[in-house]
């Protein structure tokens, strides 16, 4: 910072008397350049967080009027909800299972797309569709696919003799979670594939050739050459996926919208219901939101560690 300021000083000195006046306050000059982004960060990041924390410490009545400071009462109420632990558990298992499946599937699809075959470009482009489509639309599409009376899934599975009678995929406790994970994986695999594909293409051909000449089999090449090269990409994709899935509210909201109770809710939909749907308690919802921000902060710290070049090299 000081170096930058010193440099600009020297530059401006000779040029114009008007600018030289600014020299007297180098911080002000720096502010001119930093100002817009600072305002943006203050307005879009800091301000909402301040308001959020403030809301979580106030009592907001049903109409939405702020009835003043109540300390940690909202948090106490939130933490005493019997539904909170199941909701957090749902969130954790949903994110963990989805990310794992996405990484494994993404790896295989990336390997496949890294091979030479006809129409490779077209297929690579086609893979973008589930990712590029609006998550809301995808979720609504799957809601119909899974539907007991009108869905496409039940007739197909019955024709294949995989099930003997129709299943209410989103209404049965045992099948809701797998159904949700499938949609989550469906929309996340393309992005993951692209990240891993970029990683695969960054592996120098000589290294792979050398491994083959040294007598390594396919699995050995994958295990000892490809995977180590891919590790930073895997870390990146995994953390970004985790953040993205944690935040993908529309998926759970749409697929879960006819189920009563909170037994299938995740952190974000639970927060939404507390605020706008069932409890109508803005303060408690803000407290839940603070919890969500803390969870996301952990992900972000992980993300920054993954991005640090030293760590990537060490890994």
């Amino acid at each position: 910072m000081t170096r930058f300021v010193a440099d600009t000083r020297r530059d401006t000195k000779a040029r114009s008397p008007r600018l030289s006046r600014v020299r007297r306050s180098p911080e002000a000059r720096a502010l001119i350049w930093l100002g817009p982004s600072l305002i943006l960060i203050l307005g879009v990041v800091v301000y909402p967080i301040v308001i959020l924390v403030q809301t979580s410490l106030d009592r907001i009545n049903l109409t939405g009027l702020d009835k003043g400071f109540v300390g940690f009462a909202n948090f106490q109420k939130l933490f005493s909800q019997p539904d909170l632990v199941p909701v957090l558990w749902n969130t954790a298992s949903w994110v963990a299972v989805s990310v794992t499946l996405i990484m494994v599937l993404g790896f295989f699809v990336a390997e496949l797309l890294n091979q030479r075959f006809p129409f490779r470009k077209a297929i690579r482009l086609a893979l973008l569709v589930p990712w590029a489509a609006s998550v809301l639309m995808t979720a609504m599409g799957f809601r119909w696919i899974y539907s007991f009376y009108y869905g496409a899934l039940n007739p197909v599975l019955q024709a294949l003799h995989l099930i003997s009678s129709p299943v209410d995929w989103l209404g049965t406790d045992a099948t809701f979670f797998p159904s949700l994970v499938i949609v989550t994986v469906f929309v996340s695999v393309p992005f993951t594939t692209y990240v891993l594909l970029a990683g695969l293409q960054s592996i120098p051909g000589e290294v792979l050739e050398a491994a083959v000449i040294d007598g390594a089999g396919r699995t050995q090449v994958a295990r000892f050459v490809t995977l180590p090269f891919l590790r930073p990409y895997i870390g990146l994709a995994a953390v970004l996926n985790a953040i993205w899935i944690f935040n993908s509210f529309p998926l759970v909201y749409i697929l879960n919208k006819s189920n009563p109770g909170y037994s299938h809710d995740v952190a974000l939909t639970y927060m939404y219901k507390l605020a706008f749907d069932t409890a109508l308690d803005m303060g408690e919802a803000a407290a839940m939101s603070v919890v969500n921000v803390m969870i996301l902060t952990v992900f972000v710290i992980l993300y920054m560690r993954v991005l640090r070049p030293e760590d990537a090299e060490a890994a």
Binding site: P260, G261, D277, T278, A279
Partner: peptide, 10 residues
């Protein structure tokens, strides 16, 4: 209404 939405269906 909120309470009914949450529990009645169960």
């Amino acid at each position: 209404l909120g309470a009914m939405k949450t529990y009645m269906g169960l």
